[in-house]
Write a protein that binds this DNA or RNA. Structure first.
Length: 824
RNA sequence: GCCGAAGUGGCGGAAUGGCAGACGCGCUGCGUUCAGGGCGCAGUGAGGUUUAUCCUCGUGUGAGUUCAAAUCUCACCUUCGGCACCA
């Protein structure tokens, strides 16, 4: 292949092009988003804001480059797209950095924000920085506190005792992350569970509504995970009479069961070791064993406890109870497979029909009594629990009833005698929002000896986080050491009172930030009705799959509360959600500094340019899957952009030959590519979108090397290529747009229209199969009918050979796809 | 353990019932005075021999449905995400 000698052309220099355009865009406020633009409908795109952990890493680019590409595409489609950014700035790492001897959490965080904002700008996103939010700023957390007050006023916040991890040596509460194998990560001391009074939000009140997520345009697996997390189950609550009554006077024990039909198979009861009745019920002889077991349970994580494969453990309390329905007296045990946080914290054990109860009964020699007959059961011993349905046996007057019916009739009987009744139970628990930490929004409550807990009035918010506070672990929330903070007066009665010293879970800050962007500087309201009506709900949310359950569930909860307050439209915050996978280090493991596998985006940008890095991240693979970052492959994308540069600024000789085969094929390919790119963009298939653009570029390169091309087809191809390049690679697209003499800015142009009729091929090549194996190919008209295809196949020598002397059983013709001849 | 997802060349991946391996990396060969992580052309899943527009095998493992399975069904294995105080 000989190439005509050419004069030296100007090279593509991303590090010259990119900063120049970013400065221009910023100077022109190109990405400022007004609340209304005539003729452009509003559309709200949102990508999860980052935690202010320090430097931006490749994962941030992985999250933001595709979502920016998507937002830019919609901007070109004629929408007024809001695409804001901010910082999730409260949290444990800031405090850890401070304790390690670094800066104050606020200084550390502010420094990180400044650095990250600068780095984020180098991605070349269309974020409207005039709407930035920072959850640790008093202007923001004032309103987080306002939210708490709303929950409090609407009886959605309450206090109760709850356990927290506590390190007796460091004298501080620990996050789950800080507990390694039951020990403190800093000093290796065994971690205890310490009970304290904490605040909860009644998310369970919205459980049924949160469960109804069918209509959301979210990935099905995310909706499924949320439904399983909420875990609705219907069953019954049943009361049992304590015999004798507990020394504290308690007369009944209540349990939740999904199998009231098996009530006659109950042979013992099991309480969670933390159950409040345990201390009262235990007999003196059993006390030592029970105390030891309770202590042991405190050191076991909930995940371990739920393992169905673990050897069952437990201790007899010495107490008994009697079933109101059967009159049978059964022993009461405690075991860690029963969780205090689910149901009533107690179960009626039916070893014949529950595998965990079965294993427990086997181990401790407790009786196993069949209440539902397995198929063809002859009264023998079971080798495992029978979980199915069947006719009741050993169940008195209920004998013979099918279990589905017996569930109802036994529940009815309990209800009639006021000994229980139907009950719906959720796996979802109320949301514990108290944190015994410094770097969070203070809970706006004042404790008054006379008035009890009083919420701080709105006009006294924010309750400011004091700067000068000792964070060293003292066994108390750091805020409790600040006399100036703690001592106040009761907003109701004016007498001396003490402030709440716990702060709020940072998930609260991130549960409403998307409602703030529409009016981020409003000093009169957290969210203003007028602006939320303009923008909410979010049309497209994107973010990491690790947030698929908790963050998204909390945000939906907040939104429903906001709806009930009348401040947002609709019932759901995120109409569409796309969950991206996680980018891993080159070694296939999660990027972390300690592993030394962090891909620093700044280095990549310095070396290759932001557009190349953006495109490479999108080219790596499907966005919802994530995967390892292969450092070497980026050169391919770099080469591609250099090729694009070359074909645009140094075209072949342009001639007037619009009806030539080359021109027709180029035009066809441009429209085919455009349709592929458009479809792929709308499906978040950025990798195949870029592959399609590469194919078009390669074709243009071949035409360029051939020396000449039809002017109209070439110019149309180049213009559309640059327009399609604008969302994924905004800088180089802007530069090339200017170089082909088009008016600034490419980002204010419309997405081109592509025509399926122009993209169609006249003739196609399809495979001919014999018995499902490809044996030949035929060239036929794209819309050929079966007879035509059959005739073309019959004309093929190989097909003739393979079919000769055989019986044709069937011919399958899929137009445009294949012809399959089935012979015997 | 429970809930969810994913397993395809040396590597990232494409194909979502219809030609497995698009696009790219890497590698091999050829060409090019190519100093700026060059450029162009050809080849590149494994095996076979009659070297072809050929044959056989091949998408984690095992079974099944279908004219046709990477794709659907069942069972299993492995890896990843979440499990309520990391965010």
């Amino acid at each position: 292949m000989t190439t005509e000698p050419r004069t030296e052309i100007e090279r593509y220099r991303p590090n010259e092009v990119e900063p120049r355009w970013r400065e221009r865009w910023e100077r022109d406020r190109l990405y400022r988003t007004p609340d209304h633009v005539d003729g452009r409908p509003n559309r709200y795109h949102l990508t999860m804001f980052p935690y202010t952990s320090g430097d931006l890493h490749a994962g941030h680019w992985w999250a933001m480059a595709p979502s920016d590409t998507f937002a830019r595409y919609y901007r070109m489609r004629g929408y007024n797209v809001l695409f804001p950014m901010g910082f999730d700035a409260f949290g444990l790492p800031a405090e850890n950095a401070a304790i390690k001897g670094g800066a104050h959490p606020k200084d550390w965080t502010d420094l990180n924000i400044a650095r990250m904002r600068g780095q984020l700008k180098t991605i070349g996103t269309m974020f409207d920085w005039e709407r930035e939010v920072n959850t640790s700023s008093p202007d923001y957390y004032r309103w987080t506190q306002w939210w708490f007050a709303q929950f409090f006023k609407h009886d959605l916040a309450y206090r109760k005792h709850a356990a927290a991890n506590f390190c007796p040596s460091c004298n501080t509460t620990l996050a789950n992350e800080q507990v390694i194998g039951g020990r403190c990560e800093r000093c290796d001391t065994a971690v205890e569970q310490r009970e304290m009074e904490q605040w909860f939000f009644r998310i369970t009140q919205y459980a049924d509504e949160l469960l109804a997520n069918d209509a959301l345009e979210w990935p099905e697996h995310v909706k499924l995970m949320q439904r399983n997390w909420i875990g609705r189950s219907e069953g019954a609550e049943a009361a049992f009479r304590l015999d004798p009554p507990a020394p504290d006077g308690t007369a009944e024990l209540r349990v939740f069961t999904t199998r009231p039909d098996t009530l006659h198979g109950v042979t013992f009861m099991v309480l969670a070791p933390e159950h409040p009745l345990v201390a009262a019920l235990v007999t003196p002889e059993q006390r030592a064993a029970v105390d030891a077991y309770v202590e042991q349970t405190r050191r076991t994580t909930e995940i371990e406890r739920q393992s169905t494969e673990r050897e069952k453990t437990g201790v007899f309390t010495g107490a008994y109870c009697v079933s109101y329905l059967t009159g049978e007296r059964v022993p009461i045990w405690i075991a860690d497979y029963v969780l205090a946080t689910y149901g009533t914290g107690a179960v009626m054990a039916v070893p014949a029909h529950d595998q965990r109860d079965f294993e427990f009964a086997r181990k401790f020699g407790l009786p196993i009594k069949v209440a539902v007959s397995p198929p063809a059961w002859t009264g023998g011993e079971l080798s495992e629990a029978f979980l199915g349905n069947g006719p009741l046996v050993n169940s008195g007057s209920f004998d013979g009833e099918p279990s589905e019916q017996a569930k109802q009739s036994i529940t009815d009987r309990m209800l009639a005698s006021n000994r229980g009744g139907p009950r719906v139970q959720y796996r979802l628990r109320d949301w514990l929002i108290s944190r015994q930490r410094y770097w969070g929004a203070p809970i706006p409550i004042v404790h008054c000896d006379d008035c009890g807990p009083v919420v701080v009035p709105d006009d006294q918010l924010p309750v400011e986080l004091p700067y000068d506070v000792e964070f060293l672990p003292t066994g108390q929330s750091p805020l409790s050491l600040s006399e100036a903070f703690v001592n106040t007066t009761c907003p109701d009665c004016g007498r001396p009172a003490r402030r709440e010293t716990d702060t709020m879970d940072t998930f609260m800050c991130s549960s409403w930030y998307f409602m703030r962007y529409p009016d981020p500087h409003n000093s009169e309201a957290a969210v203003s009705r007028a602006r939320t009506a303009d923008w909410l709900p979010v049309d497209q949310y994107t973010g990491g799959s690790e947030h698929a359950v908790m963050h998204l569930l909390y945000a939906r909860f907040f939104y429903k509360v906001a709806r009930d307050l009348g401040i947002v439209p609709g019932d759901e915050p995120f109409t569409r959600y796309f969950s991206q996978g996680q980018i891993l280090g080159p070694d296939g493991r999660r990027m972390s500094k300690s592993r030394g596998n962090v891909v620093a985006p700044d280095d990549q940008v310095q070396r290759w340019g932001a557009d190349t890095f953006r495109a490479y991240l999108m080219f790596l693979g499907p966005w919802d899957q994530g995967g390892p970052y292969d450092v070497d492959g980026i050169v391919g994308v770099s080469r591609w952009l250099h090729r694009v540069w070359t074909v645009v600024i140094d075209p072949p000789a342009l001639v007037d030959r619009p009806e030539g085969d080359d021109a027709r094929e180029l035009r066809r390919l441009v429209h085919e590519t455009g349709l592929r790119v458009t479809r792929d963009l709308e499906h978040f298939a950025f990798n195949t979108m870029l592959a399609a653009l590469m194919e078009l570029t390669n074709h243009l390169q071949r035409l360029r090397d051939a020396g000449e091309a039809d002017a109209s087809a070439w110019n149309e191809a180049i213009e559309r290529l640059v327009l399609m390049l604008a969302p994924p690679c905004p800088h180089v697209a802007e530069e090339l747009w200017a170089r082909i003499g088009r008016p600034y800015s490419v980002h204010q142009q419309s997405w081109p229209e592509f025509d399926a009729a122009l993209a169609r091929r006249d003739t196609i090549r399809i495979p001919v199969q014999v018995n499902g194996k490809v044996r030949a190919h035929i060239e036929i008209a794209a819309d050929a009918d079966e007879a035509t295809a059959q005739a073309a196949a019959d004309a093929d020598e190989r097909i003739q050979e393979l079919v000769a002397g055989k019986q044709v059983r069937r011919v399958v013709y899929v137009p445009g796809r294949l012809l399959n001849i089935v012979v015997t």
